[in-house]
Amino acid sequence: MSDKSFDPNPPHRNFYGRRHGKTLRRSQKGYLSEDLGALRPRGITALENPGRAPVDPGAIFRDDRPLWLEIGFGGGEHMVHMAAAYPDIGMIGCEPFINGVAMLVGKIKAAGVENVSVHPGDARDMMDVLPDGVIAKAFLNYPDPWPKTRHHRRRFVTPEHLIPLHRVMAHGAEFRVATDIPSYVRQTLDEVPKAGFELVSLRADAWPDWVSTRYEQKALREGRTPTYMSFRRV
C-alpha cells in the first residue's frame, strides 16, 4: 500500500484482531494503492492529526449531507448497499482488516457509488475527532464475537466504545446491532442502554432495508439464529 500516512493503530490504545489475512490479489493491491486514497477522510489518523483536533464533517463529502457510520464493515456488502439505496446520505465505514478494505473498494468501483468514505482503521480513530452529534445513524453488523468470557472486554459493546459513539451521534439517531452470538446479544442489551441509548426493537428478522452479508449467511449455514437490535440515542 503506497499511502504512507495510513496509521490504523494510534500508539495510545490497544488494538485487538487481525489487520491482514490471505495474500491480496493483484487487483486488490491496485484498489489500495490507486483508489483508496481518494476515499479516505483526512485528519483522522494520529500521523495526520497528532493533536486530535476536531475535523470538519462537512469536508468529508464537501457538503452538509447526513452522515451514517458503519463500524467494521467486513467485506463491504452492507455499506455499498446502503450507499446505493440512500444516495443523499454520506456513508462512512471504518475497518482495520485490510483485506476487507480491499474488498470494499472493489465493490464501490463495481457499484459506482460516490457517497462513501473509508477509514482503513479503528472506528475509535474516527470518533476521537468527530464533533458532537454529527452521526445520524450507526451500524454494528456481525462484529467480532470474542466468544471467550475473558475476551468480552474486547467487544465493541463496552463503555470504551459506546460512550464516544453516544457523543458523536445526534439526539434521536438510530444505532443498529446485528449478531448471531447469544452472549453478544445479552451484553449489548445490558451495556448499550447504560451508555445513553434506549432499545427500540429486538427482532429475529432483519430490517426492511437490510442486505444479507457473508457473515449472516455463514451464521445461517451453521445453524445460528441472528438477532437484530435497534436503539435510539437519548
Rank of each mutant, 00 (worst) to 15 (best):
S2R: 14
S2L: 06
D7A: 11
P10K: 14
H12F: 14
H12S: 13
H12V: 14
N14I: 01
G21I: 02
K22C: 00
L24Q: 11
S27N: 13
S27Y: 13
K29E: 15
K29D: 10
S33G: 12
R42F: 00
I44Q: 06
T45K: 03
A46G: 05
N49Y: 04
G51D: 12
A53Y: 03
V55W: 01
D56A: 13
D56F: 03
G58R: 06
I60S: 04
I60V: 15
D64T: 10
L67S: 02
L69Q: 04
E70M: 02
E70V: 00
I71Y: 11
I71N: 11
I71G: 07
G74C: 04
G76A: 01
E77F: 07
V80G: 05
H81A: 12
H81E: 10
M82I: 00
M82F: 00
Y86L: 09
I89A: 08
G90H: 06
I92E: 01
C94Y: 00
I98Y: 11
N99A: 05
N99K: 09
G100F: 07
V101I: 15
V101L: 08
M103V: 01
L104I: 08
V105D: 03
V105F: 09
G106T: 11
G106H: 07
I108V: 15
K109R: 15
A111Q: 06
V113N: 04
V113F: 02
E114P: 00
E114F: 02
S117N: 02
V118P: 04
V118N: 00
G121C: 08
D122F: 02
A123H: 00
R124A: 13
M126R: 05
D128E: 14
D128S: 14
V129W: 04
V129M: 09
P131T: 07
P131H: 03
D132L: 09
G133S: 15
V134T: 11
I135N: 06
A136K: 12
K137E: 14
A138I: 02
A138S: 12
Y142A: 03
P143M: 11
P145G: 07
W146T: 05
P147D: 01
H151S: 05
H151G: 06
H151Y: 10
R153W: 04
R154K: 15
R155Q: 05
R155M: 07
V157H: 12
P159D: 14
E160R: 15
E160T: 09
L162F: 05
L162K: 13
I163Y: 09
P164G: 10
M169E: 08
G172K: 12
A173H: 06
E174R: 11
F175Q: 03
R176T: 02
V177C: 08
I181D: 14
V185R: 15
V185G: 06
R186P: 00
Q187A: 01
Q187D: 11
Q187E: 09
T188V: 13
T188Y: 08
L189H: 08
L189M: 14
P193W: 09
E198W: 04
V200K: 15
A206L: 01
A206D: 12
P208S: 11
T213C: 01
Q217T: 15
A219N: 09
A219I: 11
A219T: 03
E222Y: 10
P226T: 11
P226R: 14
T227V: 14
Y228W: 15
R233T: 10
R233Q: 00
